[in-house]
Simulated assay, not measured.
Amino acid sequence: MTTVYFIRHAESPKTDLDERTRGLTDAGQMAAQHVTTYLKDKNIDLFFSSPYQRSLLTIEAAARHFGKDILIDEDLRECVFSGRHQTMPQADVYPLVQQMFIDHTFSRDGSETFRSCQHRGIQALMLILQKNAGKRIVIGTHGFIMTAIFHHFDAMYDFNFLRQTTKPDIYQLTFRGTELVNMSRITLPLYD
């Protein structure tokens, strides 16, 4: 059995207009400490992440705790909502995302479709699972692509699910080979 912890990044400021370089807010930095505390006794073998700073920073201290490098996988990046790879205001993102969940082929301004984002995310996950059977793995990720990956396994992971996720958020998935056996949400103290 392979255990994968999907870690949605902690809170990130929308003031940085470059999606790749957005870091964490002060609250996000504190919340990332809760992620590290949770993972400390989980004997993590490998850390993978989106190349986006907010994902890296959320799992960085945990990787350091285990003396592990974070393996960057470009295919784990967030869905490209804008052809310019720029941060979009929250008020603009959710109507776009909702449309993408309704129509998996919908695209705006050269953005990715739900289908293309899901495909690259699943492809990345399958390679990780095939090469690391029996390991305990952390994947630093984002809300949309994480939900799209989960949707591949069960359609209940939809727009409404995405809306109720938090920053950060942790989901523990157990696989037998590439078959999903179990998924559960981990409740951190910061949710209380």
Score class of each variant (00 low, 15 high):
L96G: 07
M156L: 06
C79S: 11
V93Y: 12
T147E: 10
A62N: 13
I72G: 05
T21H: 10
I70S: 07
N160Q: 11
T141G: 09
H85I: 04
Q29E: 02
H85T: 08
D45M: 15
D158I: 13
T113N: 14
L56R: 03
T166L: 12
F48M: 03
G143S: 04
S116I: 11
Q130G: 14
L76V: 01
K167H: 09
A61W: 07
K131R: 09
L39V: 10
H104N: 07
T25F: 02
T141Y: 00
N160M: 07
R77G: 01
I72M: 10
L162S: 03
G110A: 08
K68C: 07
T87K: 13
D16T: 12
R84H: 09
V93S: 05
G134F: 04
H151E: 01
L190C: 11
L125R: 05
H152A: 05
H34L: 04
L17T: 01
P51Y: 00
D18H: 10
G140C: 00
V35N: 07
T166W: 06
H142N: 00
R54M: 02
D26Y: 14
V138H: 03
E11M: 08
T166R: 14
L180W: 09
G83L: 12
Y94N: 11
Q172P: 03
H142L: 00
Q172K: 14
D192Y: 15
M1F: 06
I186M: 08
Q172R: 15
S12A: 07
I170P: 01
P189I: 09
R77V: 01
F114Y: 12
T166C: 07
G67P: 12
A32Q: 06
F153D: 00
A133H: 06
K167P: 03
D45Q: 15
L188V: 11
I186L: 10
S49Q: 04
Y52A: 14
S184Y: 15
S49M: 03
G83M: 11
S49N: 02
K40Q: 15
A148K: 12
Q118V: 06
N160C: 03
L71Q: 02
S12C: 02
D154Q: 13
C117Q: 02
G121S: 05
D69L: 08
L17C: 03
F150R: 06
T113R: 15
Y38A: 00
A155W: 12
R77T: 01
P189S: 11
A27K: 13
A62L: 09
Y94H: 15
E78F: 07
M156T: 14
T187L: 13
F6A: 04
A133Y: 07
A10M: 08
G140S: 05
S12F: 00
M88C: 00
G177Y: 12
Q99K: 10
G121V: 04
S111K: 08
G83C: 10
R64D: 05
F48N: 00
G83H: 09
A63Y: 06
V35D: 05
H142S: 00
H9R: 05
F6I: 02
I137H: 10
L173N: 00
F144I: 02
L129V: 04
A91F: 10
R22C: 07
F159K: 08
F114P: 06
I170H: 03
I70P: 01
Q164V: 13
N43Y: 14
D169F: 03
P189N: 07
M183N: 04
L162F: 13
G177P: 04
F159Q: 03
S116H: 09
I72C: 05
R77C: 01
V138K: 03
K40N: 09
D92S: 08
G121F: 00
I145V: 12
E60A: 15
